[in-house]
Design a protein around this nucleic acid. Sequence first.
DNA 1: GTCTATAACCTGATAGAC
DNA 2: GTCTATCAGGTTATAGAC
Lengths: 202, 202
Amino acid sequence: MAKSTSKEAISAEEKIKAAARKVFTQKGYAATRTRDIVEEAGLNIALLNYYFRSKEKLFEIIMLEKMQEFFGIIIPFLHDETTTLDKKIEQITNRYIDMLLQNPDMPIFVLSEIRNNNGLFKKIQVGKILQSSHFVRQLKEKQPGVQPLHFIASMLGMIIFPFVSKPVFKSAGVLNEHGFATMMEERKKLLPKWIKAMLGTK
Amino acid sequence: MAKSTSKEAISAEEKIKAAARKVFTQKGYAATRTRDIVEEAGLNIALLNYYFRSKEKLFEIIMLEKMQEFFGIIIPFLHDETTTLDKKIEQITNRYIDMLLQNPDMPIFVLSEIRNNNGLFKKIQVGKILQSSHFVRQLKEKQPGVQPLHFIASMLGMIIFPFVSKPVFKSAGVLNEHGFATMMEERKKLLPKWIKAMLGTK
DNA sequence: GTCTATAACCTGATAGAC
DNA sequence: GTCTATCAGGTTATAGAC
């Protein structure tokens, strides 16, 4: 059945999915109980199993969704043949930070669940997509000596790592929620400069 | 009782601790069963409870140990008043990568467990140590406009992020175990150059 | 479709023999 | 100190009423 587009109330199925998104990404698969999810949704366990068969099946749906978002968001920019390398760096930085500010728990969730369960991830062809991208071709032209992987790992590290270590900042009293958001907004300006500076070295 | 320094066989207590280190860091607290730990140690559950009282108490011991290593390793370099900023960057990069190559699962373990359980972490005064360090004073002199936090987040991101995303590289077929180690060895040379290039921008 | 009650299983922890 | 057997509690999943 196609999803209704009218303004009618959200279905139980959708409520459970939304709750699962929230709880799974916050606590991870192993630490979440089906009870946590249905309580968050204001429903009961029977409904979860009625719609999704099992905790594991529900998790797969959420996990695939999150991996798609996490890895998919920069693909259009990587393949854009009309933009310069510098422009791509700016777009990726801005777009990624914006998306992660909406989903701050996503990186640590996706990365730690892939550690626990590489099976699900293999469906996504990250390696091939990257290697065949216009972005990597441009990188090789600009810096023939350096593996693009090194550059990409650095760029993504600068963007994503603050989200992964956000709980550390908060617990250590270095940053609160608002301070973190401000910092990431500043980084949208700062990182492209730093990333381009890396390209200037030999 | 002081730990024996002779070459006698490893005690059951030490065997369980070693097994716990391995299993907890690989799977995280929630996903490990006490049975996993004692099987790894070749012993039985009763021993675990005899020596450590509970799964949680054993976990706390391992977790404190790992946090100490993860956050503590760079402190001596941060406070060294005899070295230049450039030298510190080289030392931190080299030393951190070496340690993480020995403990590749450590970053994702420590960071995801802090997310789940900030209580344990609060005992370590990361924020104060950082702010009062010679390293941060040197940074402020060199780049008065930029928050040291931005710089540190970038530097640590470039160093640590590859370890956090290692399962992605492996599952995606981009790198195998040996390729990853090679890449990190290359990064010991590459990162100091890139990090210093960031300092040169305004 | 939704709910309550319960089954079936798993996991951490302990009792008690050696 | 070490082990086997077992308990107590919690968790997922389902049966069956509405």
